[in-house]
Design a binder for these strands. Structure first.
Lengths: 230, 230, 230, 230
DNA sequence: GATGAATGAGAATTCATTCAT
DNA sequence: AATGAATGAATTCTCATTCAT
């Protein structure tokens, strides 16, 4: 019974956080608004989530987990490679359309990209945060940012998997680097989605259609007279 | 002499602003730090720039103006279309490498993208700011955000110009929408640059080389067996 | 218990505000001093009162409410008209002696009187703020100023009520305009009180005695040989 | 020549100061606006007037001097006492209508009335500033405030002179204190003028007519059945 | 366990005054 | 003599976090 109550509190806070972070972004969102929407007390939020940043992370992680399930389902399906790519990116597109602000915030604010911090991957694949200029991040900052990089890395990794499969099936031209190409494609799609609404205010289905075209042209090129590279 | 002194104060503030905004992003940057770096008084900043937002805008606009000169020079050069596209995107890439944080901030923080605001272009081409959810932006917010959209629009417009020229020369496949395609390509490049450093910490020349490859594949596709669409 | 504690914080702030506003006036009063006197934090003030202006208004309104109770009690008493006028103005006098600075501030600073703003009463009795010269007040300024005019209007209205009653009993000479006359009398008394202390530093009882005489002479004139007007 | 130039600068600054102080009040007026209107430099203002407060005082004193000339002319004229009183108060009324904000500011802001300071007149007639509560004014504050009290005292003194003359001619009832009565009358008129525009937006001539009536009733009373006091 | 009153460090902005030219 | 660029103390307001009940 108690557990249920706690749980429902936690859920209510998470829902409220989604609403408010998606409306205001991370920095402009205030705990005051979140607890008002959640109809709870400030102490409760701190009890369950520790601080504002961790509340945001918990929210993002939850959505990330669902997204990853969808991603792996596509990656492991048995359809042909081209369909897989399209399906995968459609999942990605729909997800970003539904979570535009949340993922923008994650990719730009929380990863410290716009604070001059950078993630470097060491030889063991571990992620470390370094400052490009100025003071090095504190341990706490590093730890916080690393979490978001791990999420992004997981998201791109499952797409890499598809590209590696495609490569092994000789689907790509000579010289294509599947890790780079897959990541570039995902980021490109993300950026287009982020600016899609902004640009024209069109709807989800339109956006998907648009993205499918874009992906098609990324696969097959936009130039009429195809030639061999170099 | 006087001119030089005045100028040097203004310039010093602008340089300090670049340093601090590039280290902290817009919101986390404080006037206190900027004046400390510029070794000046707070009043001086307000005399020259009016407020924090305008200081940021002035900084961005200055860089934008130089960028646009480079852009138009490429757009109006007489080389073949493919070289133009590559050159243009190399200019774009180098610019973003040098101004990563500033342009991230402009594209996400200042345009309100991560606060649920959106720009819609009306029939006359005028830019209006609308809220996707929640309260509409105030007049002052709108006016501020419109300025940044105008810069971005100018930046994409000169690339559109190249794509329209390419289309008229039958360079593209049937069905390519040059406005969408050019914008998508610019945004894709931007996103890859934004996450380039973050991902691996490689250097400018590497990034350019990487981007040229990426652009090539976007033009000619990554798939081995080219087929006609549909 | 909780209620008492809450209450005591709010009350302490209000008391501190009264002390500081009465010592410094509105503009020269600082939140820093108020919180120091109240021995509280800045956030507490803003939680309860929203901003400085609203803190002042709350303070004034509280005193106004008590004053109005006293006023209506006098206005509705059954004594003869002349006593009523004296009693009413004595209440007014004692109130102003106790709240000199607060009511000066309200009548001159907060109503914008010394910034060239003016209240005009439209045909429906609604109060609108207009600039006599220069820029019109902003909506926020107007709204703020209107509140104080409403208080003043309420204060003069109950005196008008007495004067209308007096007129209906034929107490006044032909040609007396009860609304003007009552308001003039109240304002005259206010001005004399405002400069009473300043002029001589005498005490409340002296002031009351002085005012009663003044009121007597305003009713019956100071000229020895009474004649009919014109 | 030089003198002429200086002088014209001084005059221009004073005119600008009148315009700005009358539009914004003392505190909201800024030197920046004044020098812009005067089309001069900030240093010039400080050279001639030393500081903002002294600029205000100089302006007020200049107007005061002219007013005093008009006052003494009336006081020393040979018409009957009643006309003198009316003429005197008409001069006062017209002056206040023309200088509403300036005199409000002087009477309320600059005399420190709304900062809890008070002027006491010692046995020798000298004016001293005392705090009613809180810290005593600094020497500089005292000196500054005393100047304004002297102006006000001079303004009421010439009216006292008329009242003393009237008393000596047996114009007033027994028991009238000419100093109090004259001062009360002047302050009453001032207060009515200050709130005249605010109340109804009527014009100068209306206001004069209204004031004459009010003065008449103050002399002869508003009560129909005149009786002897007590 | 849940609450929300209280806090105060920190941020943007203003403006009278100074002083080198 | 005249200027106006430079200053920084002072002010209002915000909001994440704490902790007593």
């Amino acid at each position: 019974m108690e557990g249920a109550v706690e749980n429902s509190k936690k859920t209510r806070i998470l829902q409220a956080a989604e609403e408010v972070f998606s409306t205001r972004g991370y920095i402009e969102a205030t705990l005051d608004e979140i607890i008002k929407v959640a109809d709870t007390g400030k102490g409760t939020v701190y009890k369950y989530f520790g601080n504002k940043e961790n509340l945001f992370y918990t929210l993002v992680e939850e959505k990330h987990t669902k997204l990853m399930q969808d991603f792996w389902q596509v990656a492991q399906s048995t359809t042909d490679v081209e369909s897989k790519i399209h399906t995968y990116l459609e999942v990605w597109t729909r997800f970003l359309m539904a979570n535009t602000v949340l993922w923008q915030v994650m990719m730009f604010e929380m990863t410290g990209g716009n604070r001059g911090f950078t993630a470097v991957v060491d030889e063991k694949g571990a992620i470390k945060i370094k400052a490009q200029w100025g003071a090095q991040p504190t341990k706490a900052q590093s730890a916080s940012m690393e979490r978001y990089y791990h999420l992004l890395k997981a998201e791109t990794s499952s797409f890499e998997y598809i590209f590696l499969e495609a490569q092994s099936k000789n689907f790509f031209k000579e010289g294509i680097h599947p890790v780079d190409a897959s990541r570039n494609l995902m980021f490109s799609v993300a950026m287009v989605v982020f600016h899609w609404r902004g640009a024209e205010g069109r709807e989800v289905e339109d956006c998907c259609k648009h993205l499918h075209e874009m992906v098609h042209y990324m696969l097959y090129g936009i130039v009429r007279d195809q030639k061999l590279k170099k």
